[in-house]
């Protein structure tokens, strides 16, 4: 029991000198203009897609480092992918689907009220603009599974919408009838009549949300009052009390 007493002494001394519970500061994301956003990519309802994916965006000013992992998409086909912005920051529900060429499905336009317009085209090279590269099929990732990573410059509105958690990652290109290729089962694309709707319909979707930054402060030290701790923390105290110690020991021995 007496061992523990010194612990208390140390704790007191530490409290007195303001050492206890000093909050540890971490570099917060938002305060420096940096933002880290994450998204889970899930199949768009009615798309018949069974794939999935993840997206991470690190935004520094207008520089966005984008990492997208996708899987379970139509193999051997290009998949257009974009930041969609200025909608509701959501993915469309099944109720947003309409009849297209006799099939209930969700084309890109059907989803606009939820994920919004295109803010940036996540191409593998060259331009990333919303206008000129939205359907640059030769510059989008190909295949059933891919990992995409690129640092791009986004415009001010897209940067603002990303920070406001009002941006959505959408990966396009579905195989509605499961025949292994883009065809006209759903008619022509609402974005470009020269392309089949399957090539541009949304496949995977995920709202980008701010991620936590830094370590957690998950301890107060209330179990750290053991001997070792006390000894080192109380080192100074013990030294200071050195003279008194000897006397005390002597007297207790004689009592």
């Amino acid at each position: 029991m007496k061992k523990k007493t010194v612990t208390s002494v140390a704790a007191l001394a530490a409290i007195a000198s303001g050492l206890v519970l000093a909050p540890t500061a971490f570099a917060g994301g938002a305060s420096h203009g940096d933002a880290e956003l994450h998204a889970m990519l899930s199949p768009v309802p009615t798309s018949k897609v069974t794939g999935s994916g993840t997206a991470m965006v690190h935004l520094k000013g207008n520089q966005a480092t984008v990492t997208i992992k996708a899987q379970g998409l139509l193999a051997g086909a290009p998949h257009a992918q974009h930041f969609h912005i200025a909608g509701k920051g959501q993915c469309p529900p099944a109720s947003a689907a309409k009849m297209h060429n006799g099939h209930l499905s969700l084309n890109t336009t059907d989803g606009l009220p939820f994920y919004g317009k295109i803010g940036a085209s996540l191409t593998t090279s060259g331009d990333t603009g919303a206008d000129h590269s939205a359907l640059a099929v030769e510059r989008f990732p190909m295949g059933a599974s891919y990992t995409y990573q690129r640092t791009i410059t986004v415009d001010d509105e897209t940067a603002k919408e990303l920070r406001a958690e009002n941006a959505v990652v959408v990966v396009h290109g579905i195989d509605f009838n499961g025949n292994g290729k883009y065809d006209n089962v759903l008619g022509a694309s609402d974005l470009d009549p020269k392309l089949p709707a399957e090539a541009t319909d949304p496949a995977l979707c995920g709202p980008l949300k701010m991620a936590p930054a830094g370590a957690v402060a998950g301890g107060m030290g209330g179990t750290q009052n053991g001997d070792t701790i006390a000894l080192s923390a109380a080192g100074g105290l013990l030294a200071a009390a050195g003279g008194a110690l000897y006397l005390r020991r002597r007297s207790s021995r004689q009592s």
Partner: peptide, 9 residues
């Protein structure tokens, strides 16, 4: 030693 230290404070 501990006892003494405690006594001192």
């Amino acid at each position: 030693v501990y006892t003494a230290a405690a006594t001192a404070f």
